[in-house]
Simulated assay, not measured.
Amino acid sequence: MNHVAPPGWPEQVRPPDAPEWERTAVGWLLDQCPPEYRGHTVLRRHPVALARLTAWHVEACQAGARRGLAEARTALRDALPMDAVEATIAALLTEQARLEGVRRAAGLVEVALRGRRFPARLPGLGSRHE
């Protein structure tokens, strides 16, 4: 049986309906959240709740990165040399791009946990099969 994961699906998570896919999804989702989330049994027992909290957490991180980009030059110019300020901005841009991918992946995992399945795509169009 082919199990299909769409483009943007996290590599650490097995495709929907593959053996133990939900276990790998829970592990990946927990890796995206603060470590304290691991202590809440309800989040392991109800992966949809974990996926939703993960999405909210990542969205908050994205908001923080946007704020950092908007304020870094002003907030840091008196405390750091300009090259360090620019390097900080570059780090924020990199983080912003990473977070966009995590948010997309978390959304895909969430809809799969809610029961959505993804159609197979033609080979070479970015689908993963197992």
Results as ranks from 00 to 15, higher is better:
residue 87 A to F: 04
residue 41 T to Q: 12
residue 98 R to H: 12
residue 60 A to P: 00
residue 110 E to K: 15
residue 104 R to S: 01
residue 110 E to G: 08
residue 87 A to S: 14
residue 20 E to Q: 14
residue 58 V to N: 11
residue 89 I to P: 01
residue 63 A to D: 13
residue 105 A to W: 09
residue 105 A to K: 06
residue 27 G to D: 15
residue 85 V to W: 01
residue 96 Q to S: 15
residue 39 G to P: 07
residue 80 L to V: 01
residue 51 A to C: 06
residue 31 D to N: 13
residue 65 A to W: 07
residue 104 R to Q: 12
residue 109 V to C: 04
residue 42 V to T: 05
residue 121 R to F: 04
residue 26 V to H: 03
residue 80 L to D: 03
residue 111 V to Y: 02
residue 53 L to D: 14
residue 81 P to A: 12
residue 2 N to M: 04
residue 25 A to L: 03
residue 13 V to Q: 01
residue 107 G to I: 10
residue 40 H to L: 14
residue 56 W to F: 12
residue 72 A to V: 11
residue 105 A to T: 09
residue 82 M to F: 10
residue 94 T to S: 11
residue 26 V to R: 08
residue 85 V to P: 05
residue 98 R to C: 01
residue 10 P to K: 05
residue 29 L to F: 00
residue 84 A to C: 01
residue 55 A to M: 15
residue 107 G to T: 06
residue 37 Y to C: 01
residue 50 L to T: 09
residue 7 P to A: 13
residue 40 H to A: 10
residue 13 V to N: 03
residue 58 V to R: 01
residue 87 A to L: 11
residue 91 A to T: 10
residue 73 R to G: 12
residue 119 P to V: 08
residue 38 R to M: 02
residue 95 E to Y: 04
residue 96 Q to I: 02
residue 17 D to A: 14
residue 39 G to V: 10
residue 17 D to Q: 11
residue 91 A to N: 13
